[in-house]
Amino acid sequence: MTYQVTEKLWEKPLIALGRVFLWGSVCFWLVFVLAPVVVTIVSSFTAAEFLTFPPKGFSLRWYFRVMELDWFLTSLQTSLIVATVSTFIATVFAVLAARVLTRHRFRAKGAFEILMLSPLIIPGVVFGFAFFNVVLQFRLEGLSLLNLFVAHSVVTIPLMLRPIWSSMAGTELSLEEAAQSLGATPWTTFWKITFPMILPGIVAGAIIAFTFSFNDITIAIFLVGPETQTLPVQLMSQIEYTPDASPAAITSIIIFFTLILFFIIDRTVGMDVFAQK
């Protein structure tokens, strides 16, 4: 199909200008988005004693250096444990909640949905303070590892629920019914039929929840103890006193693993999971 385009002479440069402006601003903002990431990675390879950009020389010395830093290794271990345990707890609750939301009908369903999504409604910093407040009331501040497990499992439930919910909504109810009518118990039906079908949703949700917990400062800052510092909180306090490139090496390592997880999500359920907010 062709359309008769009545272009006026003065419009041509205007259109060209518009196009240049559009692409120019897109390029500018994409550079803006990438800048902090790229600058950090590039400067982590410096050979100099102090962090500079552009880096002086090339070396991997800061990567070897951070492998000997006690605070890095212990806080990394804490963060990995906290993220793994809280993701596991949130997965169980999110699968149950997704099942209720897709397979059951009852009056208070709207209220149930709002409750499940409430950690997204309440500002994270307010939840962190509220949780910390209760912890102090019961004098439980010594159990910071347990507090971190629990608090992170609460806020990650809605993050996990969304991908699991949508993958469960997409599965065929008839397959489950067929299995049940052939004599499978609900338990067998879940593990043999439902679970494999919702696995991509669980993987994507678990990655999002894991990275949330691993990255979190807002809630962890209230709950960490002297013996249990998570990596972001520890890194935050170390950066101030570290003029060398070791924080750059640590953040580059984090960026590298984040990229891997991002591409796993892209391959399993696609980037659309981020669009649901």
């Binding site: 994409l30 988005v33 990438l34 800048a35 902090p36 990431v37 600058v39 950090t40 400067s43 962090l51 950009f53 999002i208 990275t211 691993f214 990255n215 400062i217 972001p232 890194l235 935050m236 950066i239 924080p247 750059a248 953040t251 984090i254 960026i255 984040t258 990229l259 997880l261 991002f262 892209d266 980037m271 981020f274």
Partner: peptide
């Protein structure tokens, strides 16, 4: 989309450190 969405998974400390360097 990759460039725009990838930072979703980035920690605030990582970004803040990058901005400090810049």
């Amino acid at each position: 989309m990759v460039i725009v969405i990838f930072p979703f998974l980035l920690s605030a400390v990582v970004r803040a450190y990058g901005w400090t360097v810049i």
